[in-house]
Simulated assay, not measured.
Amino acid sequence: MNISEWITQVRRGILEYCILLLVSDNPRYGYEIAAILQQWEPLAVTEGTLYPLLRRLLKEKYITSTWQESSSGPPRKYYYLTEDGKNLLKQMDHEWNHLIQGVMEIRQFKGEKT
């Protein structure tokens, strides 16, 4: 596996987690989600990545959507967490914290003599 393949694998799960985080407090529309993720280059997504992921999350009932009128253009589709989405995000938060803690402990351990 080369670094590009590794990055692709890591990003898949992290992007889903970040999208759920972004819609957990405020409903957001697709372009807005993409614009926020653009602020962090490793998380930047294209429409070809974002919208299939949103469709999958809708199909799995982790998010729901509604159309709302926009004062600056056509109506926008806003995404919200469902109860299942809130439960999934809570589980992801728990697992993410354990994962980060484990990685940090390994980083410290690698320098220790056994």
Rank of each mutant, 00 (worst) to 15 (best):
Tyr79Ile: 00
Leu89His: 03
Gly102Lys: 08
Arg76Asn: 13
Ser65Cys: 06
Leu89Ala: 01
Ile19Arg: 01
Asp93His: 11
Met104Asp: 04
Asn97Cys: 05
Thr49Ala: 03
Ile19Ser: 02
Glu41Ser: 14
Lys77Asp: 05
Arg76His: 13
Ile36His: 03
Lys90Met: 03
Ile7Cys: 04
Val23Ser: 09
Leu20His: 02
Asp25His: 07
Gly48Tyr: 13
Thr49Met: 06
Arg12Tyr: 11
Glu112Pro: 04
Tyr51Ile: 08
Lys77Tyr: 00
Gly30Cys: 05
Leu21Gln: 07
Thr8Ser: 12
Ala35Leu: 15
Gln108Phe: 00
Trp40Val: 11
Leu53Ser: 00
Ser70Cys: 07
Ile36Gly: 02
Ala35Gln: 15
Ser72Tyr: 09
Leu43Arg: 03
Gly30Trp: 06
Glu60Leu: 14
Glu32Ser: 15
Pro74Ile: 06
Leu57Met: 15
Gly13Phe: 01
Lys110Tyr: 07
Ala34Arg: 14
Phe109Pro: 01
Lys90Cys: 02
Pro52Asn: 15
Lys110Leu: 08
Trp6Gly: 00
Ile100Gly: 06
Ile14Tyr: 08
Ser24Val: 11
Glu69Tyr: 11
Thr82Glu: 02
Leu57Arg: 03
Pro27Met: 08
His98Gln: 13
Tyr62Asp: 07
Leu15Val: 01
Glu5Phe: 07
Gly73Arg: 10
Leu50Gln: 06
Ala34Phe: 03
Ser71Asp: 15
Ile63Asp: 00
Pro42Phe: 04
Tyr51Trp: 14
Ser65Lys: 09
Lys61Leu: 12
Asp93Lys: 10
Glu16Met: 11
Trp6Glu: 10
Arg12Lys: 13
Gln39Asp: 09
Trp67Lys: 15
Leu37Arg: 04
Glu95Val: 05
Val10Glu: 05
Phe109Glu: 07
Val103Cys: 05
Tyr79Arg: 04
Pro27Gln: 01
Arg56Gln: 15
Met92Pro: 04
Lys59Asp: 10
Ser72Cys: 08
Leu20Val: 11
Asn26Ile: 09
Glu60Val: 03
Gly13Cys: 04
Tyr79His: 10
